[in-house]
Design a protein around this nucleic acid. Structure first.
Lengths: 247, 247
DNA sequence: CGCCGATTTGATATACATCAACCGCAGTGG
DNA sequence: CCACTGCGGTTGATGTATATCAAATCGGCG
């Protein structure tokens, strides 16, 4: 695993103040977006004591497909991918997760996909057994987790339409729009993609060459602009929406 | 909507005894597999009173993609499909649900996909608002729903690998194995598929012709046998597993 | 400035889609 | 009872989007 990342992915969270050490939720940047948001301060502290903060480097894998489900985590900072693959090495990225998202498989024996950091990342990691137990005693937490899982399922099913029925052009257009909704553009309207071309291909179920060709073609057509390896500026969003085609 | 079904899909549930009328859970065939399984008898009765039993004919649609989420339901009997489509009519089936499964979008404003009966079916239908309220007061129910949603998500993500990275041959092999796991074969080892060729194509993200060709080819190779329009016998399961390719 | 992996570009192959008959079974009606 | 009809399914001929293979180019880093 030797990925290199040329852009400052984590600029949004410039080393958050660790006022009360790494164990404290009060200073947590995702506190009110993560699943622990609805817990009382006391309960949140109790949950916090079950887990620990860990740092990941880009390219590191936290969980492997098919492994026993040993841990779950909140993403505090960074971007990670969820992936499955066939026996002969073809990979499909089944999800991309961002700060405040939840990862891992609670209430289940196996992790059904690998989880790998795309950028440097920080997690709030819990042993699964402890987390499950805590969740069973805290309805608010389970409710939040349910909400999030239902949303994930909706988004995943929408992506099935893309994988099964859209052309390469439509796939790339949909991908770019999706990214523009999740990521903030800089002053010049340039979005820094957290994914390499190969990873984009693995998200869309096409090859790297096809991704590249579609993007340069869109650039030729004046719909987008490519800046450096990881940057895109969406020039004609309406055109992208027409291309992405889902009503 | 004029689908016709030549095989007795529902033979497994020969007009269940309605001992205490259609409103009673005690005689419910899915009582201990559905999400209400962990409720006390009293709570189950209370939930039951919020909803009503409805009968669907094959081809009828209960919910439409993008509509306000008004109802949710347990499937008592029958098979239904969940589908989304592009503006120009390409369809992707994002899920197939069976007896004891749960359908609809609780805790959310919109139904993200249509739900249509593939066979005649019976549902235990709840207004969403009432259901949500009841669920909020009953942790066991939410826990069951969470479990089920997590399982759905796992299965859906596994299907993404199929849609994005598998060949037509692999797709059909995977589909047949999946069916053989969910459906019981009759005495001769023949499985009655609940889906037409077009619907199989819409599940796998390929065309009807490709489905047909792959199946007749597998038949030529002695891997499966086709009996009538809806019947398949899996002769060489090992070969199918090799073909389906996921490790 | 030069190097190395990431990306783009080009040439070619191919799996699958598309278009078009055709077949066969299940109703239907004479 | 049998021809007729309609629809789901199969089969064939052909087209094309995308994969594959190969090489050139770029961009960031030492």
């Amino acid at each position: 695993m030797d990925m290199r990342f040329d852009m400052a992915q984590n600029a949004a969270f410039p080393t958050p103040a660790r006022i009360c050490g790494s164990q404290c939720c009060n200073a947590c940047v995702v506190r009110d977006r993560a699943i622990c948001a609805d817990l009382t301060e006391g309960d949140r502290g109790a949950l916090s004591r079950l887990g620990r903060r860990v740092t990941l480097q880009a390219g590191q894998t936290v969980m492997w497909e098919g492994d026993d489900s040993m841990v779950v985590a909140n993403v505090i900072e960074g971007t990670l991918k969820l992936a499955t693959s066939t026996g002969d090495g073809r990979e499909q990225i089944v999800g991309v997760v961002y700060a405040s998202d939840f990862i891992g498989r609670p209430f289940g024996a196996r992790t059904p996909h690998s989880v790998t950091a795309l950028t440097d990342a920080r997690l709030c990691l819990f042993p699964r057994g402890c987390f499950d137990g805590f969740a069973m005693r805290h309805g608010e937490l389970q409710h939040r987790l349910l909400q999030r899982t239902l949303d994930d399922l909706d988004r995943t099913r929408a992506w099935m339409l893309l994988l099964g029925r859209k052309s390469a052009r439509e796939k790339v257009a949909t991908f770019l729009l999706d990214m523009s909704r999740r990521l903030k553009a800089d002053g010049d309207g340039v979005i820094a993609l957290p994914l390499s071309r190969q990873q984009i291909a693995d998200v869309l179920g096409i090859t790297i060459e096809t991704v590249s060709r579609q993007m340069t073609e869109m650039k030729r057509d004046g719909i987008i602009d490519l800046v450096g390896r990881r940057g895109v500026r969406l020039i004609n969003i309406a055109a992208l929406e027409t291309l992405s085609e889902t009503v």
